[in-house]
Computed example of a mutant assay.
Amino acid sequence: MANPIVLIPARMNSTRLPGKPLADIHGAPMIVHVWRRAMEADVGPVWVAADDPRVIEAVAAAGGKAVMTRFDHPSGSDRIFEALGAVDAAGVHDVVVNVQGDLPTIEGSVVRACLAPLADDDVDIATLATPITRDEEKDDPNVVKAVATELDPGRLRALYFTRARAPWGEGRLLHHIGLYAYRREALGRFVAAPPSPLERREKLEQLRALEAGMRVDIALVDTAPLGVDAPEDLERARRMLAPGKPA
């Protein structure tokens, strides 16, 4: 049986939305909303991996746990790897779930769904995708597409990730959701590997895993959670999380 831990990387120095983790959403910082949703998933202990003491204080004030990490990590994966060594040095947890700190509307069921592909011992990393239903997303480079082959209903094996419209021809396109469940050993392999050529070209970190020969499987979910990258996304999150409205 897997014994997961959930780690939420939080970086204050966002280019498009500085101070993003502490952005107010109806009286609570965004990072607290994400922490609450991860707690609702009820898959294991939840820690925020922060680069600023103000984030630590905000999470602690809400009753959560947070650990300080270096400010200069190049990615959230590197940040959670440092945090994992700090909060679980004994190696109790064999699966690490990386929930991005800018997903305040994510549902607990979506976090749980990411664990399902790891029931197959051959899978190194599990992630999520949802079918694209809006035509404008098909050619939007900010909507990452997963190219995958179906193994079972609702589960696929990733072959490639791209910002381009792919695969060509008739059929559904898949919007990749950047939430990952790593086997602990796989996370260590991933952060130890140098950035790969396709990763640098597409600016997609997950391609490093595929180029390193790691197996990435995908669980399908109904919708993509809102990622807050810019002020307009923050306003949309506030509308979605308004009191009395379901996310």
Rank of each mutant, 00 (worst) to 15 (best):
P4H: 07
P4A: 13
V6H: 06
L7F: 15
L17A: 14
P21G: 09
A23Y: 13
A23G: 12
I25N: 08
G27I: 14
W35Q: 04
R37P: 01
R37T: 00
E40P: 01
V43M: 08
P45A: 15
W47C: 07
E57F: 12
A58Q: 02
A58Y: 03
A66H: 01
R70H: 11
P74D: 07
S75G: 12
R79L: 15
A86S: 07
A86E: 07
D88L: 07
A90Y: 04
V95Y: 03
V96A: 08
V96Q: 04
V96L: 04
S109R: 07
L115I: 06
D121E: 05
I125T: 04
L128Y: 01
A129W: 01
T130E: 00
D139K: 12
P141Q: 05
V147R: 12
T149D: 02
E150N: 04
D152Y: 05
P153E: 05
P153H: 09
G154F: 15
R157W: 01
R163T: 01
A164W: 09
L174M: 13
L179I: 10
Y180Q: 04
A181I: 01
L187A: 12
A192M: 00
P194M: 05
E199I: 05
R201I: 06
R201H: 15
L204C: 06
Q206N: 12
R208C: 04
A209L: 10
G213F: 06
D217L: 03
A230Y: 13
R236H: 01
P246K: 13
